[in-house]
Each structure stands twice: as C-alpha cells, then as structure tokens.
Nucleic acid binder design. Sequence first.
DNA 1: GCACAGAGCACAAACGATTGTGCAAGCGGC
DNA 2: GCCGCTTGCACAATCGTTTGTGCTCTGTGC
Lengths: 386, 386
Amino acid sequence: MKPPNHRTGDTPLGSGAATLGHPVTLKNVAARAGVSVSTASRALNGQARKYRISPTTEKAVRKVAADLGFQASQVARSLRLKRSGLIGVIVPDISNPFFASIAREVSLGVEAYGFSVLLGDSREETQIEQRLVEQLRAKQVEALLVCPVGVEPDHLVKLDRSGLPVVVADRVFDGIELPSVTSDNRTAARAVAEVLIEQGHRKIGVLSGVRDSLPAKTRLQGLTDAAQHAGFHLDPSSLAGNAFTEQSGYDATLELLDRHPEMTAIFAMCTPAAIGSMRALAERGIAIPRDMSIVAFDDHPFAELMKTPLTVSVQDIPRLGRLATAVLLKRLNVNPSDDSGAESNAESSGQDLPPLSTASEMQFTTSLWKVPTTLLQRSSVAAPRH
Amino acid sequence: MKPPNHRTGDTPLGSGAATLGHPVTLKNVAARAGVSVSTASRALNGQARKYRISPTTEKAVRKVAADLGFQASQVARSLRLKRSGLIGVIVPDISNPFFASIAREVSLGVEAYGFSVLLGDSREETQIEQRLVEQLRAKQVEALLVCPVGVEPDHLVKLDRSGLPVVVADRVFDGIELPSVTSDNRTAARAVAEVLIEQGHRKIGVLSGVRDSLPAKTRLQGLTDAAQHAGFHLDPSSLAGNAFTEQSGYDATLELLDRHPEMTAIFAMCTPAAIGSMRALAERGIAIPRDMSIVAFDDHPFAELMKTPLTVSVQDIPRLGRLATAVLLKRLNVNPSDDSGAESNAESSGQDLPPLSTASEMQFTTSLWKVPTTLLQRSSVAAPRH
DNA sequence: GCACAGAGCACAAACGATTGTGCAAGCGGC
DNA sequence: GCCGCTTGCACAATCGTTTGTGCTCTGTGC
C-alpha cells in the first residue's frame, strides 16, 4: 500500500538497524513478514504456542524483526499494558555519594525486571521535591523511592493512598504511614556518642540535621541515651543547625563555638555537616583532636580517606539501597524470579536482607526496616583538655 | 452512557485528587465538564483561543481538571506527539561523584523543559552499557548522554546515525563522529606533570585509564609534552593499568613497584586510581611524599578532603555537565526560552559557556568541546631522594 | 426571507502496541 | 457429503492523548 519499506528496505542490504527517521514499528515488521500485526506481536512475545502461530511463521517474524532491528515502543506498550516500567527516585542531592549509592542500587536492582529509573534531584528543597513528584507522576512511574528533603511527608502519603506505591528511605518521619528504610540510627548514635563520653567529654555540641526528621530525632535520642547512662544530660542549647548540609554544619559550629566556648567535642549528625564543621574549626585555628574532638555519621564512602580522621558510624549504604529496592519490588508485586528477571544478582532478590525473609510482613503500608551500622574509630577523638 | 463519574464523583467532595485506582483521564474531565474530549484537551493546553473555545467553557474545564487532580498521561501524550520527554544518561558508575555531578547537571538543566532523566549505570562494562542503550532506546528516549565505558563507540555512532541524538562526555574517543564534551586534558596533564618534573622527578610511573580512550591518550600526551620539554622521555614500560578504577590503580602500582623499583613519582590518570595507589603504597610502607610523590586528575570533589594530600588537576565538573546539557538541548532543538522553560536558571542556558555562544557551530555531528581545568597543588610532591 | 459568516464545539483518525474473538481452511470419521 | 475439530492466522477494540475537519447554531446584512 504505502511505500513503507522503501526507506527501510533500500539500505545496502536489509540487515542492520533502521537507517534514518523511520522508527521501525511492528506494522513494518508484520508487513515485511507478510503477516498481520497481531501475529507479529504474538510471535515476538513468545505467545506463539498459546495462539497457535506456526513455528515457521514465528521464525520468519523473528528474523525480520532482527534484520530490521525492531524494538517495541515502550510507550505504546505502556499505554496498552498500563505499565510504564518506570520507577522514580527522588533524592536531595545526587552528587552526594550517599544518595548516589542508593540510586545506584535501585537502578541495578530493578533493571533485571525491565524497569528503568527516572531520576529527580530535589536540591534539598521541599518545593522542588513536590514539583518532581508531580512530574514523575505524570510520566506514569509505577513506584517512587523518595529520600525526602524535609518535614512534609503529607504529599507523599496522599500519593501512596491514591495508588502510587511510595517508599521512603533515610529521611524517614515519625509515625509516617509509609514503608520506610533507614539505618539503625539510635544504636549507632549511642555507640558513636559513647566514644566521646568514654574519653571524658561532657560538653558536647550537636550539629543537627533537619530537626523534625526521624534520623535527626533518633540520632539525638541515641546521644541522649548515652549521656543518661553516663549520668549527665545535654542542654538543649547545645544543639545547632537544621539541615543535613555542609553549610549547616559550618554555621552551626561557629554558632556553638560562640555560645559554648567550653565545648570540647562535636557530635555531627552527618558527614557533610562534619566537613563544614572542620572547615569552621580550621578557620578558627582549632585542631582536631587536640582542641576539639569530633564524631559523625557516615553519609558517604570517602570518609575513610579524609585528611582529618573522623570517627564515624558507618552505614551499610548499598545494603540500605538493596533493601529499599526489595521493598519497592515487593510493592510492585514482582517476585524475584518472576519476569525475565532472576538473571545473576541473587543478592538483589533480598537474600542478604534479613527483614525481608519474613516475606509475610511485606504486605503493609507502614513498616520501618532498619539496616545495622558499624562503628569506625579513627583518631578524631582525644580526652578533653579542660 | 457508562457510569464513569460514579466512582470519581462519590468521594466525599469533588475536591482533592483521585482517591484510588481510577486514573483520572481526560475523558473523565470532559464528561464531568460536559464537553467533548477534544475541547477539554484544547482548553487545558492553552489552545482555547486558537480553536474558539469560549472562556466560560475553558474555565469550567480547568476547574474540573483541578478538582479531579487531573494529570495528562505522558505516555499517551508521548505516543501521540512522538516525544517522550525522556533523556537517557548512561555513566559507568553513578556512585562516583564525578559522574553523579554530571547526571545532576543534566537533570537540573533539562527539567525546566519538561524532560526527565532516565538513569543507567553501566558498571564499567561495555556489555551492560550496550544493554542499557537498548533498554533506553526502547523507552523512546529523545537523546542520550553517555560517558562510555571503554573502547567501542561504534554502537553509539550507529545509534546517532539512526536518528537518536547522542552526546558523549568525558570518555571521548579519537576521531569519534559524535558531539563530545570533555576537559582540556592535555594542558591539564602537562601542568600536573610539570609539578613533578620541576621537583626533579624523572622516573615517573603512570597509572593509565582505559588505554584507547581519549582521556587516557591525551593525558599521556600532556605528560609526554612535559617530559620532552624537560629533555627526557618516558619508557613505555612505565605505564601500567587499563581502567579508570581504584582496583586498576592498586594493581598497577604494585606492578610498577616491582618493575621499576627506582621509580620516584606516580602520575595517576584519575583520582580513584590514585586512591588505589595510595592503598598499595601504604601496604608496602611507602610514605607520601617522603618516599614517593604522586599527582592525579580530579575525578571527584572530595580530593580536597582526603587524608593523604594529593596534587590534582581539577576539572570544573558542573560546568562540564552544564556544557553537555546545553549540547543536548541544542540537539533537541529546544532553544532556551522556548517552552515553559526559561524559568530561573539562566546559567543552564549556556550563558556561562563560551563555546556555546558561537551558536552557529551547534549544528554539527562531530565537535569537541573542552572545559578548562585548574591546578590544585597540595603536598603530595617532594623532591626525589634517589 | 435568505445567504453567509463566525462562534463554539463534537467527530474521528491517528500514535504503536496487546489481546479476545472470529473466520477460513484442512482433515478425519461416519 | 456433512459435521466437527484443529490449525493458523486476521479483525478490531483498546489504552489516553492530540488535532484536522466538519457540523450546528446564532446573528447580521440586504
């Protein structure tokens, strides 16, 4: 009828992919193979037996498809199947290795099931986060993994209720009605605080992350636990900062130095804040650990290599990412070894994830999974000189 | 006819988004507003005037849409418009801040134009890279930014020829027929090499990245330039390694230490390799810079904070990312200030990008843009002791 | 009283896939 | 020779949009 195979057909030889413009469509394949579109579709989707397509025909279709370099349009497919194969991942800052690692694990983990990751960088701004959520929703993502920026999880809860599975990681909120994945911050905070306390520190300044976020609250809780156990308590005025950023750590440190000159140690709620703090301390000529001890939480994998040693509580970030991925997949009802998946990565199937083995609790709306942390002591702590 | 507004209609009050399942479609909106789908579509797309929809009707439609929380399905839209609004970004390792920064800039830069970024992590494997390319192609990405893994750009060139705009960054290839963005590696390499040479180093070991990649070749070239200028030349046997990875740096260092015990300095082609090298040196009890000097290229922003100081050539990564984004956008024919874009980020429009001001050269298939680098000297270099 | 213009909207055909169902052969049994 | 079963495939509806075209009014000029 139309001259469709003129262009695709007159390349030197029928082999190779489409040469230009001409998106190779199923219709083309079908025409060239001399069958109908439906037959072509079934032949290519392994539905040959089911719909009684002869092996001869099937092979013919496959050959033509291969020759033409046919790739089914996922958008048409999505429309029909109501499955976009897209998963949204929204993080506050992808250039932060912590979030990058999480994104990475999700990307690797879902790839085997034919999903792709749509990336969103909220720049630590709630407003942008919301815009991204809308943008990704419009793109029909099938699920969302969010490391929320701040303190407003409401729009996420609403989204989840409206049928789009949402999983939150790291920046988890208290009583949030969403499946969440985070580290065991309380235990970790206590452990890291005890390093200070055992050295005799009592005047401890805290560089806080977003105050209302669960990580911040829980880490504070762990510190309080440790203090209480050691028989003292922390004055609320020794808290400063309100963000998980380097800038916040810098500002908060200066603030604390002014407010509490007697301070002998700093408890940073994240590595970026610790780095900002170090900058501030360096500017004031305060040496670590001679004049000031410092401990922190590991938000990224380079802490190990930093010039000022830093005692940190190390999160198993890839594991956290894998756990989040597993939760996502469960919510998407893809049992590992379902689709074309089950290829190589057995680990992404949740085997190494204890909480997931109890697969029963995976039908939930609100559960909190925790990943254990380890303590890495480096010489950023000494006894106080005062 | 059908009872479509039964479900969407009986939520407590028409306000708020869809409560469950019911994807709010244009048809719903139209029905509720008492108009046809086409009218609804035009009303919502600002085509009211053009198609003589009365302002009354237009407002009514808008209101209903807002009430229902209507969001046009991008997949249906894509199908019709043949524009997916998707841009693929494929990098060897997203958890490497260098690539993460690039991905970030792309994500931020294209967001204003309604594009989203589909992320692919090739794990430094050509095979996976190719699989990802196919996967993203099927998802109908409108353009691809690739930081290729290795040495085979052919499939990318073919892709570009077949009509899918491809831009490559960083891991650029010699004579590759694709628009490329990279740093000015030759100059940078020369500068960093001269730091060694001026201290008297002549026995220099080189930790190479992928041998056939342009960054590796060009950086070697810069080193050779510097050597030649200083009146000596490098033995090919002083090269080791063949990947931009920490492992490669580690292995190559051990190899070189055995092969050339007289070596006094190391020239690492990337920071991960430098880090691997440091590990190897530490294991052998070799101190920096006392026993061995080392210089490197900045692949990530934390070099500044590392415990062993490292003299590096610093790439302006965000700028590289923005440049790549600008090239992408150009190839997509979105002039900044076209769409709903032109919001805030003036910088992403290419203003800060000198090579782009010459907008004429943007219609190309094969151009190489370079971003300047700076030199950051830190005490990882001392005079040789031998 | 009629033609005609413009306003205001509806119809229907795409886009590229999937899938339930229907239709035409071929073949064996009686 | 007819019925019925199997085989092998084609038809057509559908997913949710966009958009060219055509239809029906209302009002005006003459």
